[in-house]
Amino acid sequence: MAQMNMVQAINDALRLEMKRDDRVVVLGEDVGKVGGVFRVTAGLYDEFGDERVIDTPLSEGGIIGTAIGMALYGLVPVPEIQFADFIFPAYDQIVSELAKYRYRSGGEYPCKMVIRTPVGGGIRGGHYHSQSPEAQFIHVAGLKVVCPSNAADAKGLLLAAIRDPDPVLFFEPKRVYRAAKGEVPEGDYTVPLGQAKVVRPGADVTIVTWGAMVYEALDAANKASAEGVECEIVDLRTLWPLDIDSVVASVKKTGRLVVVHEAPRSCGLGGEIVSLVNEKAFLHLEAPPVRVTGFDTPFPYTLEMEYLPLAHRILPAVLATAKY
């Protein structure tokens, strides 16, 4: 075990897999010599050279389009999009092409890659360095979506994602890139995709969340505990395909559900989770499921801490649900 933050853990996973599998290539803007604007690919250029760690022209469509071609040839691309907010020039390649390749070719052309990209707010990034677009990719059949909350999960999930047969969007919560420090196992291990984790057991209210909001949920849970309400926090880790069994099992235990996410409220993943729980555990519910989310506005700059669903907004929702 070693103490690592999430940046180091992801870097460790990339290095390990690049050593193990020479088909793995990293490409993107500023990923090479400088090691990425968040230093996630630091040192890889020196270790693996410029044919495997590639600084590209400034074109996300170009990055993902060429990565698709590389994947079709048999390489395993791990492109980086500098911020998730800048993924949209590649949206056509991801949505119309990458997601549908296997299906539209009758299984003849499976096409896999892991697109790594930082997401989320709380770093004074304004509209275009703060968004959480997971729902826009979950809604596209054929893509898997991952978002770790801590360093050990980040490493194990990334290794699992690179070895997965399907295309994966790997969302890295940049607000906790350096703050989410913890013990990370050395060497090779995976955290299987599609498995949530209960990060805090509790009998009264289930909080389903992921990424940086796990810490806000923990903060709110500790405060709720002082008022006699015990929260169970389910960290989804893989957002799609969702670990619905873990969510339903927890709701059957507590009878109450609060979903927390940074993304805007309407048509967010929270709405889907609430629907699924209604379908699968309706008779176990003691209170209407609740969403605590970003607002349905663009992500603001100065007022970002009011926009985000932080502990101060989670706590009253938890207490109200418990009392319902």
């Binding site: 409220r265 607002f295 100065t302 970002e304 801490m305 985000l308 101060h312 907004r313």
Partner: peptide, 15 residues
């Protein structure tokens, strides 16, 4: 959403 924000508790850490 505006009414809910105005009625709820304030965040720390903005101007």
């Amino acid at each position: 959403q505006r009414e809910a924000l105005l009625a709820g508790p304030r965040a720390k850490g903005h101007g």
